[in-house]
């Protein structure tokens, strides 16, 4: 069954100028949990103690959703997640040569080494690890598969294919995800951005292509033109493509109204 991953509290809050208070974060998480969202990416513990405290509060709130924290492949980030009492860790690495050479000024080999070390560190604390492949839509697919394979051997259980700048279109998304699903050693999560207004369509196409997880944000909040709006993805998936999920669409729509009220749109 297809599963949805909500990242309103992490990628959504990263939109310039948006800040949720700890109480608002908890309220959004409670609403997402009540709606039946299985995975909530709740924040980045490396941002400091306040963020860690907010995440700890979510862990203790008796939510049915599993709380995931976002990390770079950096020791400090992993330890911050552990300090936030997290056991589901998303570890992100860039996989496009553009990001590796222009942003990190490093090599593919360096990325693999850091990724492996970070996964092993998280695993040493008994955590479940999800790999995030940043800028995957502009990366060499063979490198994506290589990284996925190494991550799987190190103990990761899922890989996020991130269309970081929203540069995919649905026919291509479906083909790529279909090809990757056939070869990937890990189940694929699709993570779309809305720069060309096609994030929902790309998410739908990725699901058709075999992605087992789709991530997005409530009301589509997020960097630049935002992420795939999760309530729209769910509506399209269930009403147009007859996907079955246990998530309650009406609850998500209400959560979208709440989030819109908080961010003032």
């Amino acid at each position: 069954m297809l599963e949805l991953v909500d990242t309103t509290l992490r990628d959504g809050e990263q939109a310039a100028g948006i800040v949720f208070s700890p109480d608002e974060k908890l309220e959004i998480a409670k609403r997402l949990s009540a709606a039946g969202i299985p995975w909530i990416e709740a924040g980045t513990p490396a941002m400091g103690q306040a963020e860690q405290a907010a995440i700890k509060e979510m862990h203790g709130a008796g939510l049915t959703s599993k709380i995931v924290t976002w990390n770079r492949a950096v020791e400090g980030d992993i330890l911050a997640s552990i300090a936030a009492e997290s056991s589901f860790l998303h570890i992100s690495i860039p996989v496009s040569d553009l990001h590796i050479t222009e942003k990190l000024k490093k090599s593919r080999e360096w990325v693999i080494k850091e990724m492996r070390a970070a996964i092993l560190l998280a695993k040493s604390f008994g955590c479940t690890v999800f790999l995030g492949a940043e800028d995957a839509s502009r990366a060499d697919t063979e490198f994506f598969l290589k990284v996925t394979d190494i991550a799987e051997k190190a103990g990761a259980v899922r890989v996020r294919y991130a269309d970081t700048v929203g540069c995919l279109e649905p026919l291509a998304a479906q083909k790529i995800i279909s090809r990757l699903t056939a070869k990937s050693s890990l189940p694929i999560e699709f993570h779309g951005h809305n720069d060309f207004g096609m994030a929902v369509a790309n998410s739908l196409a990725a699901a058709e292509g075999g992605a087992q997880f789709i991530s997005g944000t409530i009301a589509g909040i997020g960097e630049r033109a935002g992420n795939a709006a999760l309530e729209k993805v769910l509506k399209a998936l269930t009403e147009l493509s007859a996907y079955q999920t246990r998530i309650k669409l009406e609850h998500l729509k209400e959560t979208a109204k709440y989030v819109n009220m908080l961010v003032g749109s």
Binding site: A15, A16, G17, H99, E102, T164, V165, E223
Partner: peptide
């Protein structure tokens, strides 16, 4: 998308770091 006034506003550490190196990153 395309015409919103904030679609080129960047705040997060990783993104701003990237943008200042090469805007195409983000």
């Amino acid at each position: 998308a395309i015409i919103g006034s904030e679609i080129f506003s960047h705040e997060s550490g990783i993104h701003v770091d990237g943008i200042t190196k090469n805007p195409q990153l983000y």
